[in-house]
Design a protein around this nucleic acid. Sequence first.
DNA 1: ACCTGAACACCGTTCAAGT
DNA 2: ACCTGAACACCGTTCAAGT
Lengths: 229, 229
Amino acid sequence: MWLRPERPPRDRRLEREQIVGVAVAILDAEGHQGLSMRRVAAELGVTAGALYWYVANKNEMLELALDAVLGEVQVPDPDMDWRQALAALAHSHRRMLLRHPWVLTDLTAQPNLGPNALALTEAGLTILAGAGFADADLDAALAAVNDHVIGAVAAELAWRATMRTAETGPGEWLEQAEGYLRRIRENHPMLARRMAATSDVDVHTESERRFAFALDCLLDGLAARLRRR
Amino acid sequence: MWLRPERPPRDRRLEREQIVGVAVAILDAEGHQGLSMRRVAAELGVTAGALYWYVANKNEMLELALDAVLGEVQVPDPDMDWRQALAALAHSHRRMLLRHPWVLTDLTAQPNLGPNALALTEAGLTILAGAGFADADLDAALAAVNDHVIGAVAAELAWRATMRTAETGPGEWLEQAEGYLRRIRENHPMLARRMAATSDVDVHTESERRFAFALDCLLDGLAARLRRR
DNA sequence: ACCTGAACACCGTTCAAGT
DNA sequence: ACCTGAACACCGTTCAAGT
């Protein structure tokens, strides 16, 4: 995908950039479900087949869309403290994923070697190398932070999805859920207590709190390893 | 989904269990791409429409499949040390996700309140409560570990996918990749060094090493918080 | 109660033919 | 060089009609 240069223009009616822009807009608004080649084409006033002039297939379009939004992640000021810099990078990464929830699905399924993805990796490596990590530990340390971002956002989105289904089927759902949840509570005492305590928290702020909590644990662990060398 | 009991049998030719079994088998073998209602039905010697007697739609079938494989995660011996127990749970979780790579996609998109999912949460909470965590920190600690598992497996699968495309397009890919990668190396010195060092490692063992590394960092951080109380 | 068969409204992708 | 139009081989879902 990233190997082949874009065709030189001549009678072009379209650009890759426009196609990707429309794709991202649709994905943001309606998720993967709403995205089809025909839909993107229609939005651009063109036939579905025309897209295949610019893009090999739908998958390639997704790869482009993915790298486009990866470009939104802000690389922190290089002369910050490494912990602050890494935390800032992680938070910016998280915010981007929450703006474009469909990205998570792609991240696991697609190889991801676009320019923005690589630039982000370079930024992370630079911060951690400056902190004192090297060799395999350098890779592992960056992976640890990135994995946390991905996992935390995945959990946050799943939580949101659950709340959404609970809200949309108001009468029926809660009514029947009552019986199911009661049985759950009986067999799962810990869960029951946590559910009671968590029932009225704001998903957004609580997710953010948990994100920062785990990130801090992780950075503590990384800092400890640095001292031990 | 989990609220409504299964219909009582009479002239049944099918069971939910069979449908889910076939679905999981297809997903394991061919991923989400290979799964269709028509395909599942054919495998069971039945028409696509028949499935809708047992299952409201494809999504519900996926919810069932997801919870089924969550049942494969082994809950550790309750009188283990909390760190060991949590690590064991995380490793078992990871192995399950690697056996069923399609699960990751579902985890982010679907609310996930099946019995096996809840039982796993209960197990994690029990371990961490035994260690001394309580209230919001208890939730955050469990989320931290779970998020790491999800994120790490996502990264591992993406890495594998990259290796696969590099291998399948042998002549053409590597040839054109050469130019792209050279440009990358010039602009991204850190990345260039890590790529050179990582080019001949085994993805599987290195992923496992990184997984254990980050998990250890995380558990160190959690243990430190426990001491501070 | 459970399943079939056919239909509806979609997909991604290909490819001759046009300009 | 770039796009259309039509076709191919699929989808998920619904629903009358059968047993």
